[in-house]
Computed example of a mutant assay.
Amino acid sequence: MEKQLIIDAHSHLWLRQDTVVDGQRIRTMEGNGSRSQFFGEERQMLPPFMIDGRNTAEIFLSNMDYAQVSAAVVVQEVIDGNQNNYLTQVQHQWPERFFCMAIATTADEACAALKTGLRGIAVPNHRLKIPTAELMPMFKYMEQNGMVLSICLDDDMRQIGEMGEAIEECPRLKVAIGHFGMPTTQSFEQQIRLALKGDNIMIESGGITWLYNSEFYPFNSAVRSIRRAADTVGIDRLMWGSDYPRTITAITYRMSYDFILKSEEMTDDEKAAFLGGNAKDFYSLKTKTDLPYIKNMSE
């Protein structure tokens, strides 16, 4: 397969985790910054060599360069705390490598984010569970101002149905459905079919290796889910995402897309579209980075 552009449509950055979700504190552990207190449990939140708890753009860029990933979309999750200020700095410092999103739930918050240079909004609604009607003023503002929405949905037919109505009401709004529509749940088919409700709807695979972690590399069931989605909505509606850095506690960053390159279930053209071509067009990315392959010491 010829060298191609690879773009990550779902990643995360933060300076330090310290927030409260559903009344429970989530924070970086003292003494071992790669671990976090997470809903009453100690979890390996970062790879064990990232010991200061800082999941920074500089570290991610090193991983991106190594894995030959030219650009990344940075979304947000409530469990990481609000990173709007940090991601604004990242966006201005590396505009060709990152498309950073603010976390917001109102039109005023979206307006404030746009003024700082962030052109996307992330809504982790699988955790927030905000009725879509309450988000509609923000969606309409985003549609009017050319912003991109990244939204993760719960395994909830009501929420999915409401999102479908929002898509129909805001036909020019660009929407990326996260976590690949949760392919291990009963609502997978309904989530990916949201891509058929409008011309600007995409499905991105952030977290798919986490969802199939028990199976592990080469994630054959994940490939079958990608194949099923492509057959249902078309490969032009699908994008690769890694869910960096949480997923690389189990695998390397390169492995998070390498299983697709090695699969015989997809054609070369489908791989090129899924791994980078679709995201480049959807996010109007200007990246021209041509990253060389650097041999490992083990090779």
Rank of each mutant, 00 (worst) to 15 (best):
M29I: 08
E58V: 14
V73F: 07
L61T: 05
M50I: 15
L87A: 03
E58G: 15
F38C: 05
E41S: 15
V73S: 05
Y86S: 10
A72R: 04
H92C: 09
F49D: 14
G33K: 04
S34R: 01
Q68F: 08
Q83R: 06
Q91A: 01
L46T: 06
D80W: 08
F39R: 01
V73I: 15
Q91F: 01
N85P: 01
E77G: 04
M64L: 13
R54N: 14
Y86D: 07
E77P: 01
D52G: 08
Q89V: 00
L61Y: 11
E30A: 09
N85Y: 03
V75W: 01
V69Y: 02
G53E: 08
P47D: 15
I79W: 10
S62G: 14
E77L: 12
N63S: 13
I59S: 12
S36K: 05
G40V: 12
E77V: 08
R35L: 04
D52C: 06
N55Y: 07
V69Q: 10
Q89D: 03
D80T: 09
N84C: 00
S36D: 12
Q37P: 01
V90T: 05
G31E: 00
A57S: 14
V75K: 02
D65S: 13
F60P: 04
D80K: 07
P48C: 07
I51M: 05
M64Y: 06
Q91M: 00
M50T: 03
D65R: 13
N32T: 10
E41M: 15
L87T: 05
I51E: 11
R43M: 13
N85K: 09
M45Y: 04
S62W: 14
M29K: 07
V90W: 00
V78D: 05
